[in-house]
Amino acid sequence: MNFKKYVLYHLSIIILFFSSLAYSQTEETIYLWPNDVPGEKDTKHPPRQTDDISGNVIRLTDVTNPILTVFVPDKRNNSNVGIIISPGGGYQYLGVNKEGYEIAKWLNDLGYAAFVLTYRVPDKQEGALNDIQRALRIIRNDSKKYNINPKKIGVMGFSAGGSLSARASTNFNKDTYQKIDDIDNISCRPDFSMLIYPAYLDNGENRTLTPELIITEETPPFFIFETADDPYGNSALVMTTALRDNKIPVELHYLSKGGHGYGMRSGNIAAETWPSLAENWLSIMFKPKQER
């Protein structure tokens, strides 16, 4: 990498770093792959922000060097839970503020540690699965550092990020990349999964469950939120049915209106509804108490 590219690379990381600071206190950026990125043909470089800033959304694409952005709460609860957040964007881009940093701030306000995953896009679904599996292993390996119980690490995804979270929650026994270090010997099974308006879960024949999603008795519990007017709304129904049929704990909330891609911004009934339901589900699961 020449000097000009080196400067531009690190300038871009600094910009992303301070963008995340605008939403919550972040400790660090974690690069998932210390050397070569599995299956990646392009060299490592900063992600590119698209020209589309409609809806006040930061959209990143051309991700070749996946990262986790760490958000730690000012006041922790005693649940010792960590949550990896996967923004959506149709596997083409990542809406990192609306479905990433803003969600991390909310989780921090509840006392949970959060990690926003900048996974590979565009059109790199296999690479994205590599990335979230590696992310789970890294956070589990560093659980003491972040005051997290290694058995309380979950995933939360929006739209395509919901697809990715579901894939991580059903493919954790599958080696999707060649191991590069001892961290890859650690389990990449999420301990719980939260899907907010998930997409692409019904790509099976006649809109049935996507064949890649293999549900077993080891599949973790799920929280799923969806609306009937979402064009991807069948995904939540299909996934919930499959989980129920396999006796996996699942909580589904299905509103009549709300559409798709609303994050948790005010002005949309679905966006204003799901956070309290998710907070309650997490509280029941882990019974956190706020530190004083």
Results as ranks from 00 to 15, higher is better:
Leu21Phe: 14
Asp74Gly: 14
Asp230Pro: 02
Ala160Trp: 11
Arg189Ile: 13
Leu107Glu: 07
Asp142Val: 11
Ile84Gly: 01
Glu27Val: 07
Pro47Leu: 12
Asp229Phe: 02
Leu201Ser: 00
Asp182Trp: 13
Asn65Trp: 07
Asn108Thr: 08
Ala22Tyr: 12
Asp184Cys: 10
Pro66Lys: 01
Val81Gln: 01
Glu212Cys: 13
Thr273Asp: 07
Pro231Asn: 13
Phe286Tyr: 04
Ser235Tyr: 09
Pro231Thr: 14
Phe18Gln: 08
Lys144Ser: 08
Phe286Ala: 07
Lys174His: 14
Asp52Cys: 09
Gly161Trp: 00
Pro150Val: 07
Val238Glu: 00
Ala22Thr: 15
Ala228Phe: 05
Glu251Trp: 14
Asn171Leu: 14
Asp245Trp: 00
Ile53Pro: 15
Arg59Asn: 05
Ile269Phe: 11
Glu205Gly: 00
Asn141Pro: 14
Asn203Pro: 08
Pro38Ile: 12
Pro46Tyr: 04
Glu40Phe: 11
Leu21Ala: 06
Arg134Ser: 05
Tyr6His: 13
Cys188Arg: 09
Phe71Thr: 04
Val250Met: 06
Ser165Ala: 11
Lys5Val: 12
Glu205Pro: 00
Asn171Val: 10
Ser24Trp: 10
Lys287Cys: 10
Thr43Trp: 12
His10Leu: 10
Ser165Asp: 05
Asn78Gln: 05
Pro47Arg: 06
Ala114Ser: 04
Trp281Cys: 03
Asp230Met: 06
Gly127Tyr: 00
His253Val: 05
Glu279Arg: 04
Ile269Thr: 01
Ala113Phe: 13
Thr208Lys: 00
Ser187Asp: 09
Thr241Ala: 15
Glu126Thr: 07
Glu218Val: 15
Asp184Gln: 07
Thr61Ser: 03
Leu243His: 03
Ser283Glu: 06
Ile186Arg: 04
Arg244Gly: 15
Ala199Lys: 10
Asp36Leu: 15
Phe222Pro: 02
Pro87Ala: 06
Lys257Gly: 10
Lys247Ile: 12
Ala228Cys: 09
Lys289Cys: 05
Leu282Gly: 01
Pro66Ile: 10
Phe3His: 13
Gly127Asp: 01
Ser169Arg: 15
Gly82Met: 01
Lys247Asp: 15
Leu213Trp: 02
Ile183Met: 14
Thr64Met: 05
Ile153Pro: 03
Cys188Met: 10
Lys5Phe: 12
Ile53Asn: 15
Arg207Gly: 15
Pro190Val: 00
Asn97Glu: 01
Arg265Ile: 07
Glu272Ser: 02
Thr69Phe: 13
Gly82Pro: 03
Leu94Ala: 04
Gly111Pro: 07
Asp62Pro: 04
Ala236Glu: 00
Asn246Lys: 02
Ser193Asn: 13
Ser143Cys: 12
Asn65Leu: 08
Pro87Arg: 06
Asp230Gln: 05
Glu40Pro: 09
Thr29Arg: 13
Asn246Val: 05
Glu27Cys: 12
Glu40Trp: 10
Val72Leu: 14
Gly258Phe: 06
Tyr232Asn: 03
Val121Lys: 00
